[in-house]
Amino acid sequence: MPERYLRQSALAHLGLESRAVDDPGDAGLVLCERAHLGKVGLRGDAGDKGFLDAVAKELGFALPLRPNTVAAGEDVTAFWLGPNEWLLAVIPYEGTPLAEDLDKALTGLHAGATVLTDSRTVIGVSGPAARDVLAKGCPLDLHPSAFPSGSCAQSLLAKADVLIYLHEDGGRFDLYVPRSYADYLWRWLEDAGAEYGVAVSGD
């Protein structure tokens, strides 16, 4: 295996680590790159019990079947993306073994797992102004009554496709963004947060 340090996150060029602070002070918006999540795209028929069972057995928990919901195990979080599509976020970020295991488990079924670790990066958005900043570019209603903690949704943020996930504790949004848009989206977020103050935190 190549050295881990050779692997660069989508926002590595911004030198975010050197900007990261422990205490964001009165910044309304706190941003970070969560560079070390593995991602696996999973396709299969939600109506196929065999598929669901096989995946549940492999993951240790059942896939979320309700729209815009999330299910999680210890190291894997599964996001509902559509009636036959899920994204699995994996700790640590080498998603390959999980994809291979899933592929094996799904042999014979019309289903497939694809490693997408490098396709997207994750930008964490928190702070008291997080919702206000996201509202500047996202048409979703992110009010707690409409988008409770633990929800996910695919939508637009400014001109980038994003998967938005609000953590169970309600404290942070994770934005899964296509890698090539990450630099744009980061700049957009800093611009949108300017009126509230922006701080960078570690992952």
Partner: peptide
Amino acid sequence: GRDVGALADPARTTPMHG
């Protein structure tokens, strides 16, 4: 709004851009 100037259009970059 802010869709002008540097944010007018997303500039997509490759991993080797730097």
